[in-house]
Design a protein around this nucleic acid. Structure first.
Length: 567
RNA sequence: GGGCGUGUGGCCUAGUCUGGAUAAGGCGACAGCUUCCUAAGCUGUAAAUCGAGGGUUCGAAUCCCUCUACGCCCGCCA
């Protein structure tokens, strides 16, 4: 069973190609506003090709097109297509019941994609600003899974380099007594105090710079003790970071340590290869790559290597392990991204990475910075969201056990955190405001989760009463749904289109927006069409509610938002 | 100064890549809806010269140019 809307579109394109001689890429079938139809086609673009009036073309097409799955209507120079609603209804319900929460998934591409995200310096806890990266990355990973790819989520651990040297200097030289109390009993919150204090000292005392450089030099020279200390600190902070990510349902499949690239000497190798290129030059012993009169240094004067070199080596390594590479980076890495692309292309590396850049998150108008300690941590955001969810539950329910409340509050709270970040397209800046982030109405995860629990509740009541699940769809009349029901079915049927668009554009906000629309559509159905009290349509509506439940489950999975059992 | 990105009702955003027929949603405001499957819901009203100006086009929020506000980058940091 396949997807009705996708099939219909293909049918329209095939028909048009049969009638007029236009290149396929000129056939731009769009989704118009609802009143006009399911698909529309302006005929203007054909006018210069066929040397005819667009209205004339539309007329000709509308007369000759023969559609099996729907109808066409001409409106001036436009063609509006309407899918056969009975057919759409039946196909959609049957496909949903068959594919269950897999509904919306596309055919396997047989390709592997590595999604690299977060890769934050392990020098402290994630703050809300940095949390945008894993949330975007993980959602894109989930989108690619639905779009038929094999996906590996990778975290690149910057466990060496200056920031880590600063942290390590702090751990080696500072007394815990001189540090402020830790905000929470968690490894990343514990160690960030050393990093922050060391950073402050470094700003005041230039001689410290030499000590830090010494640490870097020793590490690259193979000093086991320093190396161990550095990577151990990274490891410690990482355990705190991954703990936070796990709470948000963000798993990491594999880690690549920056330090391992040094050990495997692949950094050295890539610098050698780079040196062969025309655009690679030397200045005072330091090697740089030049593109469009911009220099990117890959080694220091003293011979130690720099982040661009290591990142190059990392991408060479990655490129051998996947068919596509997706990177999620903050907008401050844009010029680095361009360097990376140019240099990798020059080195004939394939595949080249596709990068999603995201703008920063400010906190009530102010910049967030780990170094300065001015931020709302992700942990704090999650805790507050959980507490807020708990309050909201207590406002409406007094019949739930403590464990149930805990469980629901966690799912609602974490859903709210993810949705709040993902609903905005990555390139747009976000200003984090508590009041908005904790709004659980309208465009929010709880709104979507609520519609899910409504559907679930209906299905459970029905099962309890009838003692059986819906089994024989053949006996159902799936071709006589009413207007509001069809609207819901059309919305459900849209899911595969949305997932395809999201994957094509690396745009994780699309499924987020869609989820809200789907939930809203169900809420209207819920108001207008009694299910359990229906006289003649009960089984059909049960099937429809069930279809919705699978579709919304599929989107929630894509967004990494859990389903509370009730709300 | 140069490069990149963003600017859409009071507020937050979708639509911009791939130009198309009355600019879509949420928050807030106002007016309503609970003898009936959970009101974290639903209905309705008011509110937008799509940052400004010019251009291309049969047609521009969408493409091009200029300007403007804001953010990011312009390190032998990452």
């Amino acid at each position: 069973m396949s997807y009705a809307l996708l099939e219909f579109k293909n049918e329209i394109i095939d028909e048009i190609l049969d009638i007029v001689e236009v290149p396929e890429e000129e056939i731009d079938i769009e989704r118009p506003s609802e009143e006009r139809g399911d698909y529309a086609l302006p005929c203007y673009p054909f006018s210069p090709i066929l040397k005819k009036d667009p209205e004339e073309i539309a007329r000709e097409l509308s007369e000759k097109i023969e559609l099996e799955n729907g109808s066409v209507e001409r409106s001036g120079p436009y063609l509006n297509f309407n899918i056969d609603e009975d057919r759409l209804s039946k196909d959609t319900v049957i496909t949903c019941l068959e594919k269950e929460e897999d509904f919306g998934s596309l055919h396997s591409k047989g390709e592997k994609v590595i999604v690299e995200h977060t890769s934050a310096n392990p020098n402290g806890p994630l703050h809300v600003g940095r949390a945008r990266n894993p949330i975007i990355g993980d959602t894109i990973a989930r989108i690619y899974e639905k779009a038929g790819y094999e996906v590996e989520r990778q975290y690149y651990i910057n466990d060496i380099g200056k920031q880590m040297a600063i942290l390590t200097w702090g751990v080696l030289n500072l007394d815990e007594e001189d540090l402020p109390d830790t905000e929470r009993d968690k490894d990343d919150h514990d160690l960030v105090r050393y990093y922050q204090k060391a950073s402050r000292l470094l700003e005041e005392d230039e001689e410290l710079e030499d000590e830090i450089q010494e640490i870097i030099g020793a590490m690259e020279a193979g000093d086991e003790k320093i190396f161990t200390q550095l990577t151990e600190n990274a490891e410690t902070v990482m355990s705190g970071i991954t703990e936070s990510l796990e709470r948000l349902e963000i798993p990491i499949d594999s880690y690549k340590r920056e330090s391992s690239l040094i050990k495997e000497s692949s950094v050295e190798d890539v610098i050698k290869e780079l040196w062969e290129l025309e655009d690679t030059k030397k200045e005072d012993g330091a090697i740089y790559y030049e593109d469009e009169d911009r220099k990117t240094f890959v080694t220091r004067e003293n011979g130690t290597n720099l982040y661009p070199a290591r990142d190059l080596a990392y991408h060479v390594w990655k490129s051998k392990r996947a068919d596509r590479l997706i990177n999620i980076l903050g907008e401050d890495h844009k010029s680095h991204g361009r360097f990376l692309l140019d240099a990798l292309e020059d080195l004939n590396v394939e595949p080249l990475p596709e990068t999603v850049f995201h703008s920063f998150v400010t906190f009530e108008g102010e910049e967030m910075s780990t170094r300065k300690g001015s931020y709302v941590t992700l942990d704090e955001f999650m805790d507050t969201a959980h507490e807020h969810a708990e309050e909201e539950i207590l406002k409406r329910r007094d019949d739930l056990s403590k464990t149930d409340i805990e469980d629901i509050a966690e799912k609602v709270g974490m859903g709210a955190v993810r949705y709040n970040i993902i609903k905005v397209q990555p390139e747009k800046p976000i200003d984090f405001v508590w009041e908005e982030a904790l709004n659980f109405q309208g465009e929010s995860a709880p709104f979507i989760q609520y519609s899910y629990t409504r559907a679930k509740s209906i299905l459970e009541k029905w099962r309890k009463k009838e003692g059986e699940d819906l089994s024989k769809t053949e006996k159902l009349d799936l071709e006589s749904f009413e207007e509001g029901e069809i609207r819901l079915l059309k919305k459900i049927a849209e899911l595969p289109l949305i997932l395809r668009k999201a994957a094509d554009q690396n745009a994780p906000h699309h499924p987020a927006r869609y989820a809200h629309g789907l939930a809203a559509e169900f809420n209207q159905f819920y108001r207008d069409y009694p299910v359990l009290h229906s006289k003649n349509q009960k089984l059909e509506r049960i099937a429809l509610v069930k279809s919705f439940k699978f579709a919304i489950t599929s989107v929630l999975e894509t967004l990494g938002i859990k389903k509370p059992k009730e709300m």
